Simulated assay, not measured.
Amino acid sequence: MKLAHLGVGLLAAALLAACSTPQTSPENADFVLVDKSDRTLTLLRDGKAIRTYTGLQFGAAPNGHKQFEGDERTPEGRYTIDTRNPLSAYHLSLRISYPNAADRAFAASRGRSPGGDIFIHGQPNALPVGRMPGDWTDGCIAVSNSEIEELWSAVADGTPIEIRP
């Protein structure tokens, strides 16, 4: 009888794991390229595109490089994915290492804060289905919930990311 309970428990654990793991996951990327003008995010491996996501949503002021806290712009330049947040208010999120030293120096020279906490993330947890309309983040890059699940699986911490205008 104990073996039967153990078997049922293992089966339940396996089913739970299968349900929480994205079923379609691209191979691991070694570089992330975001093109703000095309609204695309491309995962690359060894210089070859392995998956492209379209229809990205940005900060409410999508044009130009983020310079200051509250400017609602999405940064441009080279950064890394430096950590992940499974308890994000936006489904899942991958943090971008903005601001870098140059960003901090520029903001400081103007007596301002460069801001921070820039992520690639899904839609708000409070949104029952679908996507928020338009550009709505405070400078982050928003994708659908299913897309952030794929990105979560395919992009490791430390992966370089380039965000182009």
Rank of each mutant, 00 (worst) to 15 (best):
K2S: 05
K2I: 01
L3K: 14
L3V: 08
A4I: 05
A4S: 05
H5Y: 14
L6V: 06
G7A: 15
V8K: 09
V8D: 02
L10E: 07
L10I: 10
L11H: 03
L15T: 13
L15N: 06
L16P: 14
A17L: 12
A17D: 08
C19Q: 15
C19K: 14
S20P: 07
P22T: 09
E27R: 13
N28R: 15
A29V: 02
A29F: 00
D30S: 09
F31L: 11
F31Y: 11
F31D: 03
V32D: 03
V34H: 03
D35Q: 07
S37A: 08
S37W: 02
D38V: 00
T40G: 04
T40P: 03
T40E: 06
L43Y: 02
I50S: 03
Y53I: 12
T54V: 07
L56D: 09
L56G: 09
L56W: 05
L56H: 08
Q57D: 12
Q57G: 11
G59L: 02
G59S: 06
N63S: 12
G64V: 01
H65T: 13
F68M: 01
F68C: 02
F68W: 07
E69I: 09
G70Q: 08
G70R: 07
D71A: 01
D71T: 01
E72Q: 15
E72V: 07
T74I: 14
P75W: 11
R78E: 12
Y79S: 05
T80R: 02
I81H: 06
I81V: 11
D82N: 07
R84V: 13
R84P: 12
R84E: 13
N85W: 13
P86S: 09
P86C: 00
L87D: 15
A89N: 10
Y90M: 13
L92P: 07
L92A: 05
L94S: 10
L94G: 06
L94Q: 09
I96M: 05
I96A: 04
A101D: 15
A101L: 11
D103V: 04
D103L: 04
R104T: 15
R104K: 15
F106Y: 15
A107W: 00
A108K: 13
A108W: 04
G111E: 08
G111T: 04
S113I: 08
G115Q: 09
G116N: 10
D117F: 02
F119D: 11
I120K: 03
G122C: 05
G122M: 05
G122N: 06
Q123F: 04
P124W: 03
A126G: 11
L127I: 10
P128W: 07
R131N: 06
P133Q: 15
W136E: 09
T137N: 08
G139A: 06
C140K: 05
I141A: 04
A142S: 12
A142T: 06
A142R: 11
A142K: 10
V143R: 02
S146R: 12
E147H: 09
I148D: 06
E149V: 01
E149M: 09
S153K: 13
S153W: 08
S153L: 07
A154G: 03
A154K: 06
V155F: 06
D157S: 10
D157F: 04
D157T: 12
P160W: 00
P160F: 00
P160C: 00
P160S: 01
I161M: 08
I161H: 04
I161C: 10
I163H: 11
I163G: 10
